[in-house]
């Protein structure tokens, strides 16, 4: 015991020092990224090693349990359908192989578009100022109050089926506000700082100052805001799907949950039907949260002391 204590403490210190060298290599960030990459890999490899045709209705027996469990009809799970099948005869493994990357895709696309808009508007507001600033600020204040889910419910109820990309773009119309506000605030505080003044005095163009001098300093904040938006977008998309809206012909995790609830899967004890998509979504959100916490540590060194 007396021997191990100092070495362990040293080890810990060494690890801490290493972490301070490169804040981007903190374990939370790595774990979070690992989880998301795992889901993408599941989608890619799944399509190669598993039969994606099994997502179609009636391609498998109904309501089979996962391996190692029995359903109410005393049927045991079989290896042909390792995660069980749903009430319409779809294989759940195939459903999540197709569905999980779809959810992530909606989140990433919506957030990318939202982020692009946010960077553009935030810089314009902070840098140009005056009327432009007033306008952008008021509009983003207004739009941040409106819950995207409700407008999208009205939209989809009126239009019926939408494609995955369309849904992502619709969601993107509601996730540009927080990056806009964040960037505007940062730009306003950076505008008067020494290096920006220096660049301006040396005759750099506005574009150069905005994107070459200021943007790199915002990267950790932008990443944080981006990940937060991915979460919001996925939550909104899943929300729509659980209400029975969203894409009608593409398997998504939210739609699987919707069908499970509607078919009374909770009472019939078909836990794998809603439980597997639920758990997968939960894991996805945990991964996103870990990334966000890791990014917080990158941009706010005070947080590192405690964890």
């Amino acid at each position: 015991m007396t021997d191990t204590t100092p070495t362990r403490a040293e080890h810990k210190l060494a690890r801490k020092m290493k972490r301070f060298e490169n804040p981007w290599m903190n374990p939370k960030l790595l774990w979070g990224a690992g989880i998301l990459i795992g889901i993408i890999v599941l989608g890619l490899l799944g399509r190669i090693f598993w039969d994606p045709e099994l997502v179609f209705t009636g391609s498998a027996p109904l309501k089979l349990p996962p391996i190692g469990f029995e359903n109410l009809r005393k049927q045991a799970g079989i290896w042909d359908f390792p995660l069980g099948t749903d009430g319409a005869g779809r294989d759940l493994l195939a459903l999540i192989i197709i569905g999980a990357p779809n959810s992530l895709f909606v989140g990433l696309l919506a957030s990318c578009v939202g982020m692009g808009l946010g960077i553009f508007l935030g810089f314009s507001a902070g840098f140009i100022g005056g009327r432009t600033d007033d306008f952008i600020r008021v509009i983003s204040d207004v739009m941040i109050t409106i819950p995207p889910l409700l407008i999208l419910v009205v939209f989809q109820a009126a239009y019926g089926d939408v494609s995955l990309t369309m849904m992502a773009l619709l969601i993107a119309a509601f996730v540009w506000q927080s990056p806009t506000r964040l960037i505007r605030a940062q730009v306003l505080s950076m505008r008067e700082s020494g290096y920006v003044q220096m660049a301006r005095l040396s005759g750099a163009s506005t574009m150069h100052i905005m994107f070459k001098e200021m943007l790199p300093n915002l990267v950790p904040y932008l990443f944080g805001s981006f990940i937060a938006n991915v979460t919001t977008s996925i939550v909104t998309a899943v929300g729509l799907e659980v209400l029975g809206l969203g894409p009608q012909r593409i398997p998504t995790l939210g739609r699987t949950i919707y069908e499970a609830i509607n078919s009374g899967a909770l009472i019939q004890n078909l836990w794998w039907w809603w439980g597997i998509p639920t758990l997968l979504l939960a894991v996805m959100f945990i991964g996103l949260l870990l990334i966000n916490l890791g990014l917080d540590e990158v941009s706010n060194p005070r947080l590192r002391k405690l964890s």
């Binding site: 939550v235 929300g239 949950i257 609830i261 909770l266 439980g275 939960a282 949260l289 870990l290």
Partner: peptide
């Protein structure tokens, strides 16, 4: 860490364990 999931998912889990399984609460 578990508080990152949206309430609908926690709702489903609680509903299953506390209502459907243990019958502590109405479904």
């Amino acid at each position: 860490i578990f508080t990152s999931i949206p309430p609908i998912l926690s709702g489903l889990l609680l509903m299953y364990f506390l209502s459907a399984k243990m019958r502590l609460f109405p479904l």
